[in-house]
Design a binder for these strands. Structure first.
Lengths: 344, 344
DNA sequence: TTGAAAGCGCTAACAG
DNA sequence: CTGTTAGCGCTTTCAA
């Protein structure tokens, strides 16, 4: 039970066996069998001496660390995570839990300008990494070259070289707009994040446009409000919409994240528009934020915890050499009806 | 630039020097000087070959990992983190950022029943750990014995053996109640989390009681609503308060976390009480949530990012052997006035 | 200034 | 079934 270094040697001595035996027993190495009495003696020695394995030594030999890296988008390079959006916290929570159940730990790290995440991964002998968001195209070549198991979450890449966990964001956007259409809305605005070419926001936007077009409604760029995925952007968009909805005829808004929806509520209110009687709102994600506003948000729901769990299972699958075929995993989405949409 | 293992040997060969030289130059080992040309050759070799150091090997030798562990409260043992409260996300974000700027990475891990965090720390050769919440008394002896640099955040322990980063929660509670008192409120309810004996909620509650007593108001247990730190608990408390405030005479509530304040708003509204005209509300933390409700929350503000930064700097201080004296670091708090309190 | 070499703790041939 | 031993990549003492 001492704090200092108890080595595998020490427990070998204590148990009166060789280090090999101890190593085999502790690792339950397949194909090695031992007298149950031997096993018992080894385990006794372990508890008696308070032995814990030294992962550094183990990593050095195996070249694997039982560590999984998680890359979370930063607001800017050098800066902090975008944790104000509960989506990330929920995701990380699920990832950590699932990894831990499988004997892995999570290393989180943003990146500085002088070091790419791949360098971190190599330096730390990460067994795999989960990349959230869309850092891909810039680092594609490097990641590919590093030959490290990577799972992409919410990245729409042209390169199908990596396993990806995602939802059908385009379909989600379509569902949201269709829902509004079915309620009789014809002029539907869209508040969204930055429309980077291969991001989820882009896809949701395209889905929205498709639904409108399928309903015979021409795309009107004036109804698109893109900015940062933040509360503040929601406020700004809400104020603009509230200030013009009587002329523009807008009766509904599809907003692509709960956190922006909260801002939107505020902005609409500031501008004197009521939800849902003046403006109906449908959101995306359905984090717990959707339940705290008034009226509660109708939203396209995705299961963030499942996304995290699936991402971990996918990296582990790649690490273990299974899952080489199952390249793309698409999780289901649905619409949760609450009070923020009314019919026309 | 290859993915495979480039060793320090390889770059020694490439640069035409010995491994010792390379090691010294790469580590900028104090007291070792080299011809600037040699240094240049080594660095050239590093970039040419794409060398990244192997932390496992380094850890094995130094017995340090440049890894800092962060322990975040779990809802239950075995379970996931309490990330729905933005406090934790903001804290972690700041911790990761500060650590990274200092060349450290963050390992996050909850604990399973079969393994304490200290075992994780030993197995992973963590250089230090930041413990958030109050796991202390149960593990006190073990942590002490492990002799690993520990910084406690938001833990009120009797044992002053560890460096602690905190705010004066009792003072915060006092300030909140005093603020309400000064506005003319006499019957002030308190909605809080579980009152574990050495937790922040306990302290805030004591501050509230003290302020009331100092104002000559007897403590009334009926005005205390304790439960879990969650949105739901806030809702329940709000409904109860709204249902009885006309009889009980309650005109104000001090709620000990923003996330509960949001629930409280909802509950009050459900029960037909208006904020602030019927019931004034003052909250604690002042995360971004305080700004999203209507009316915006007046709150006791603590700087979560600063707390994270300070915690990291404190562990690093302990690791480097400085800071042995500065045992307790108390961060400032203040009151941010917004629209949720009105005078009487 | 530089180099040889002894480990750090562990795994996994290989030999018994 | 069990023991010996050669590394994994790196730091650092000691000697040159």
């Amino acid at each position: 039970m001492r704090a200092g270094r108890v080595r595998i040697q020490d427990i070998a001595a204590e148990a009166g066996v060789s280090v090999t035996t101890v190593s085999y027993i502790l690792n339950k190495t397949p194909g090695q069998t031992f007298a149950s009495e031997t096993i018992q003696r080894v385990h006794d020695a372990v508890t008696a001496l308070g032995y814990v394995p030294n992962m550094a030594a183990r990593s050095l030999v195996n070249n694997r660390s039982r560590l999984i890296g998680v890359v979370i988008p930063q607001t800017e390079l050098h800066k902090e995570f975008m944790f104000s959006n509960p989506f990330y916290g929920d995701f990380l929570s699920s990832v950590e839990y699932t990894a831990r159940q499988n004997g892995y730990h999570i290393l989180i790290s943003g990146t500085n300008a002088d070091q790419t995440y791949i360098e971190v991964a190599r330096t730390r002998s990460l067994d795999g990494i989960i990349i959230l968001g869309m850092y891909l195209e810039e680092h594609y070549a490097e990641i590919k070259r590093a030959e490290i198991p990577v799972v992409l979450v919410d990245c729409y890449s042209e390169n199908k070289d990596f396993t990806a966990v995602q939802i059908d964001d385009r379909q989600g956007g379509y569902m949201a707009a269709k829902y509004l259409l079915d309620k009789g809305h014809r002029r539907i605005a869209h508040v969204t994040g930055l429309l980077k070419s291969r991001g989820v926001n882009q896809q949701r936007m395209v889905g929205w446009r498709m639904a409108l077009e399928d309903a015979g409604i021409a795309y009107d760029e004036a109804l698109l409000y893109d900015g940062e995925v933040s509360y503040e952007h929601g406020v700004k968009a809400g104020e603009k919409i509230a200030g013009s909805f009587r002329e523009s005829g807008v009766t509904a808004v599809f907003v692509s994240a709960d956190i922006m929806a909260l801002g939107l509520y505020k902005g609409l209110k500031n501008g004197g528009a009521l939800v849902p009687s003046d403006i109906s709102v449908i959101s995306f994600d359905d984090t717990w934020l959707a339940g705290i506003c008034d009226p509660e948000l109708t939203a396209v729901r995705q299961d963030v915890a499942l996304k995290g769990k699936t991402a971990v299972e996918a990296v582990l699958g790649v690490i273990d050499g299974k899952l080489s075929d199952k390249r793309e995993i698409t999780l289901p989405i649905s619409i949760v009806e609450r009070g923020s949409v009314c019919g026309r």
